[in-house]
């Protein structure tokens, strides 16, 4: 083959041949996706099924792990905590991320580029580094404490090792996901739509509310789902920045696996977390429609 060769479909004969080719194209599509399918089956589906099996069979074939989960108020509370926290972080990310993405897309230029660069750099920095940075910034010898003391707070309120610090850290780590996905969908919006709205007499706000906002919703849905799901499984940041009461379910699962070797119980917790997430997504699908996820 060389650069001048013509694709079969471009020649009359090729166009004619395209019909019967379709099944062969299907076969090649399958062949191409086979590695990915294999990968997902081996590295995701199988381990996941294994987790479900272990949750019912370790230590014995019974529901004992689930009984333990639901009989202690701690686990339900931590699970509730985790979802509430994921919701809170998602809401804050959205509230902060949407206007930023809007500015980047609508004003563009040097400002947009600079903002985008800042978001991307934050995204590329390891979350551990960012978490430890908050320890320094919010710590009792850090600049924020000094500023509060200078302003006149005495004693200076504790700003580290509580829900506030955890929320701040998590929002900081996850907001790039929100901005990126909203940015991607906003960029696809044709500016002519807004001009058309204006020419029909819409005020800038009306134009935004009835034209721009609905068109940007897929990005919002996508970003919220991403942030929410990642938040559910996150636990390093809450452990380092949070107080004793900011325990996340993923942290408890890790503890059961690593410290107590209770794999059956850990698996049951993971299954409950997964099932709750799926249930929430199902409700969400009913109300909003998951197809919006893919734009």
């Amino acid at each position: 083959m060389n650069a001048t060769s013509v694709r079969p479909a471009d020649t009359p004969a090729g166009r004619k041949a395209f019909g019967p080719w379709r099944s062969r194209a299907n076969i090649s599509a399958w062949t191409l996706s086979a590695p990915a399918v294999f990968f997902i089956a081996v590295l995701f589906v199988y381990p996941l099924l294994d987790v479900v099996v272990i949750s019912f069979t370790d230590p014995t074939l019974s529901l004992v792990n689930y009984r333990e989960f639901f009989s202690s108020p701690l686990y339900a509370r931590v699970l509730g905590n985790t979802f509430w926290f994921a919701f809170l972080v998602t809401a804050i990310c959205l509230a902060l991320g949407y206007p930023l993405a809007y500015v980047i897309v609508r004003y563009g230029g040097t400002l947009g580029f600079a903002l985008l660069l800042v978001v991307a750099m934050s995204f590329w920095t390891s979350f551990l580094v960012r978490t430890y940075s908050w320890l320094v910034i919010l710590g009792s010898k850090g600049p924020v404490t000094k500023l509060l003391a200078w302003v006149g707070f005495d004693p200076v309120p504790q700003i580290l090792f509580n829900s506030f610090a955890t929320t701040l850290g998590m929002v900081h780590i996850l907001i790039p996901y929100m901005i990126m996905s909203i940015y991607a969908s906003m960029q696809k919006i044709d500016p002519n739509h807004l001009r058309a709205a204006a020419s029909l007499g819409a005020t800038p706000f009306q134009g935004f509310r009835t034209v721009f906002l609905p068109l940007s919703l897929p990005g919002v849905v996508n970003g919220c789902t991403l942030v929410f799901i990642i938040c559910l499984g996150f636990y390093v940041t809450p452990v380092l920045l949070g107080g004793p009461r900011d325990q996340m379910i993923a942290g408890l699962i890790g503890e059961q696996i690593e410290e107590l070797l209770e794999w059956g119980f850990a698996s049951a917790m993971a299954v409950v977390l997964l099932a709750t997430t799926m249930a929430l997504l199902a409700i969400y699908n009913r109300l909003v429609g998951l197809d919006k996820l893919w734009g």
């Binding site: 590295l43 294994d50 272990i54 699962i253 696996i257 794999w263």
Partner: peptide, 15 residues
Amino acid sequence: GGVAAGAMILGAPYI
């Protein structure tokens, strides 16, 4: 890393 990540996130005990 895969084992650790899997174990932490999903409780997948061993690959």
